Simulated scan of single mutants.
Amino acid sequence: MKNHIGLFLLSFILMFTSFLPQGVQASTGNEGINEKLGLPIVVYGEALSDAQKSEVTDLLEVDQHDEVDEFTVTGQDIANYIGGNPNSNMYSSVKIIHQDNGEGIDIEIATPDNITEVTKEMYHNALLTAGVENADVLVASSVQVSGHSALTGIYKAYDAKGVSLDEDRMKVANEELDVATSLADEEGVDEAEVSELLTEIKKAIAEQNPATKEEIEQIVEEQLSNLNIELSEEDRQRLIDLFDQMRNLNINFDDVRNQLDELTGGLQDIINDEGFWDNLSNAIQEFFEALTDFFRSVFN
């Protein structure tokens, strides 16, 4: 009898999971060497010990590729790319697989418990600001870190492949990441709400094409109001200054509008999908009806 019950429950689990949304994973499988796009790039944090580097190698699934280009990101790199502290200890590491034009950016964090401040949506937003396009990115760390150094590693990977990213855009992207993590940490705003706020401001900038700092301020205030987010005057000003810098760099967010929509739309699509919830409800109801019939058959 126990075997029958176990098989029945297993069948339900399989039926139930068939209705769940499937996560999108960065492409990391063994696909051979792509002669058009080049080898995957792995950038290790310089502060990793040999044992930690070995662990990160496993986390980034490096052995799934026939060959990779390997680099190390250092404190000097963070100074060169974004004007950071050259004495910084770099732990977070990344793997980048270049994709065809139009594929966009796909980011996954292999060790979410060890990347304590930066979410994948924050990385996504910052990379769009920096001008990074069309790549699968996998981030990992063997120790708990904020996750900031991974961004520098991505910049170094692109530079190593001969893709020149604008220095000013990289610095603004790093400032964006600092603002995002600060709002989540100091203001207590949910990380997802922070990412949504930054994304909605960019979408509004793309739509309205503001010409002055005053217009940027209006957009920031409107989006804070729309999302019911309360910030200190200091942090409101940080947001205004940040996006005014972006305005002065003439970043064209229309070029990445689809990705900005995806950043805010994914969860809402699931929540608002009546068909999904109807199917799930029907599946649960059918399960309990079948369960009742099953036990009746066993004990009668």
Rank of each mutant, 00 (worst) to 15 (best):
N87C: 06
D69M: 14
I78F: 00
G84E: 00
E70G: 05
S88I: 10
D69I: 09
Q52F: 12
E67K: 13
Q76P: 07
N80H: 12
T57R: 14
Q52I: 12
N89K: 06
G83I: 02
L60V: 11
V73T: 08
S88V: 03
D66N: 10
M90T: 04
E70D: 13
S54H: 12
Q64V: 01
N80T: 13
Q64R: 05
S54G: 15
S88A: 13
N80Y: 14
N89Y: 05
G84A: 07
L60D: 04
D63A: 10
Q52A: 15
N80C: 06
D77T: 00
T74L: 01
T57N: 09
T72L: 08
H65F: 14
E55H: 07
P86G: 04
M90Y: 08
P86A: 01
V68C: 01
Q64F: 02
E70A: 08
G83K: 03
E55K: 13
N87I: 04
V56T: 15
V62T: 02
D58S: 03
T57P: 10
L59H: 08
Q76F: 09
D77K: 08
D63H: 04
V73I: 05
E70N: 14
H65W: 11
D66V: 11
Q52C: 12
D58E: 13
N87H: 12
Q64A: 06
N89E: 11
L60F: 10
K53Y: 13
T57F: 08
E70M: 03
D69E: 12
G83V: 00
E61K: 05
L59S: 09
P86D: 06
G75K: 08
P86M: 03
V68S: 02
E61Q: 11
E67A: 15
Q76N: 11
T57S: 08
T74C: 02
V68H: 05
I82F: 07
N89T: 02
Y81N: 05
N89V: 00
Y81L: 02
M90A: 09
A79F: 00
D63K: 05
N87F: 11
Q52H: 14
S54V: 11
Q52N: 15
D66H: 10
T74K: 00
D63T: 07
S54T: 11
E55R: 15
N85Y: 12
N85W: 07
V62A: 01
